[in-house]
Design a binder for these strands. Structure first.
Length: 467
RNA sequence: GGUCGGGUGGCCGAGAGGCGAGGCAAGGGACUGCAAAUCCCUCUACACGGGUUCAAAUCCCGUCCCGACCUCCA
């Protein structure tokens, strides 16, 4: 099996992945700022990195996966004050919504899921290092800034030049305490009515970037393998993380991976557009496993243009695969085990080429269905297993207990008995060529939401998927 | 202004010098009392203009169009 190759934003190229410690992989992914309900763009990121994690685990690595929760920032405080609730009421509400969305879509919980406000101590320690070694300065008003022009390297991830950056238009040079308008805040001085924590340089709250450097260091050490997040984080967030951590003398991330957007009409989801694409809303249209399939099918670095039509077609395609697996399980008399085909492994090792992996699933599906027609149990078993193995990596295994329906086995058995009585009636009617009667039985069952198919092995029933 | 990415068949979506990924849709066929499911076959493509090459969707130059980041953002 070929080695795993992954893209690195820092070099803009695909290269062989070699972890720092053999057999172990450490990953830090920037999670959400919990200030609104999750939309499908947020969970796409979660799913993309979940697929990476599952593939690393399947490849034999022990994976430590950190995804943080940003629970303090300007927007949160603004919104809390508008809604006249304490900020922590707001963040807890949305953090729970995000957790529920991830769980519903079968995104594995992170190894650790640190909150920014739980790591103020680590942030202060990091600032102390930066101030002691002259990288950062505290002008005395409670703010702490990183002095970017002192850095040996800056903007290496986004490939920009510091002099080309547009500086904030609203920056009032007269009142600013910054030595350079491009210096960014590690720490922001307390404002009346806002939460603050004491530091040696005055009370305040964290700037946006400091938390990730502090938490990555706390959980993964000075160097770790992969840092992930959305494309928009490359600048300034990830550049500034690099700046802080490297200025402190840490090695930081060895590889940077960024997922692309879910777009609408070619544009990144904005808040106004995003409202129509809330996870909760989309799940009124398709099942969670189908949404996961849809979001996971595009390559993580490609834009995914959302449309209801594409979502519906994707769901139908998934049901076809799912239908095969269920038939296969019935014919085999057991759930097929999950196996990884060589072709699927080749695809995944090529920078997680899920679309190429999909083509291998399509081939398995064709051969598996042929196996059903030919009553070739070996072919059914092999192809069902390889499909299941691939779906497990994509997080869309219909046999995964996370997706199990509410129907109990007892109830299913009871249903099976009752429906078989009807099917016996129908078989009798067909034997005497009374097709009106046999069709009436089938139509009656269809009206109840039960689909009947006549297979070579006899009639088969299933619950009709809503569409 | 700077940086980064993109424009592929009716639709979705890969590929990144040489056998037209794959799926959906469409048309034809097989199976079937019908239906469903399934299988087989067929079809349509690389924004535009130049260039390099034996060979270009892929490399180079130019043009047009779209998007992202430089302010919070998955």
């Amino acid at each position: 099996m070929p080695a795993l190759n992954l893209y690195d934003t820092a070099t803009r190229s695909v290269s062989q992945f070699t972890p720092i410690k053999p057999g172990e992989v450490s990953i830090y992914v920037c999670g959400a700022t919990v200030q609104a309900s999750p939309h499908i763009g947020h969970v796409r990121s979660g799913i993309n990195f979940d697929i990476l994690r599952r593939w690393l685990i399947k490849s034999g690595y022990q994976v430590t996966f950190i995804r943080n929760v940003t629970d303090i920032d300007d927007k949160i405080l603004d919104k809390a004050s508008h809604e006249d609730v304490p900020w922590w009421v707001l963040t807890m509400k949305y953090e729970r919504e995000f957790s529920a969305a991830y769980a519903g879509l079968n995104v594995m919980p992170p190894t650790y899921e640190p909150r920014a406000t739980g790591h103020i101590t680590q942030m202060i320690e990091l600032m102390q290092i930066l101030i002691d070694n002259g990288s950062a300065y505290a002008p005395g008003n409670g703010d702490v800034y990183l002095e970017v022009r002192k850095l040996k390297r800056y903007l290496t991830l986004s490939g920009q030049r510091i002099d080309d950056l547009l500086t904030a238009a609203d920056l009032d040079a007269a009142t600013s305490q910054k030595r350079d308008p491009r210096d960014f805040a590690l720490w922001k001085a307390a404002k009346p009515g806002e939460p603050s924590w004491p530091t040696p340089w005055g009370a305040g709250r964290p700037g946006w970037h400091l938390e990730c450097s502090a938490m990555a260091h706390a959980y993964l050490g000075e160097r770790f393998d992969i840092h992930g997040g959305g494309l928009d984080l490359i600048f300034p967030h990830h550049e500034n993380e690099i700046a802080q951590s490297e200025a402190a003398g840490f090695g930081f991330a060895q590889r940077w991976m960024h997922n692309a957007w879910v777009t609408q009409s070619g544009e990144k989801m904005s808040k106004s557009l995003g409202n129509s694409l809330l996870v909760e809303k989309i799940l009124q249209r398709v099942r969670p496993i189908e949404l996961r399939w849809y979001l996971g099918c595009a390559h993580y670095r490609s834009m995914l243009e959302y449309s209801e039509q594409a979502l519906d077609e994707s769901a139908i395609a998934f049901r076809r695969i799912e239908g095969f697996l269920k038939r296969a399980a019935e014919l085999l008399g057991k759930t097929p085990e999950a196996l990884i085909s060589d072709a699927f492994a080749v695809a995944m090792n090529d920078d997680l080429a899920v679309p190429a992996g999909l083509a291998t699933i399509a081939e398995n599906l064709r051969l598996g269905n042929q196996g059903i027609t030919d009553a070739d149990l070996a072919a059914i078993s092999k192809n069902a297993s390889q499909i299941r193995g691939a779906l497990e990596i994509l997080g869309c295994d219909p046999f995964d207990s996370n997706f199990a329906g509410s129907t109990s086995d007892d109830l299913t058995q009871l249903m099976d008995g009752v429906i078989k009585l009807s099917l016996a009636e129908r078989a009798a009617a067909r034997d005497r060529k009374d097709f009106a009667a046999s069709d009436a039985i089938r139509d009656g069952l269809a009206a109840l939401g039960i689909t009947i198919e006549d297979t070579a092995q006899g009639p088969r029933w299933s619950i009709t998927e809503k569409s």
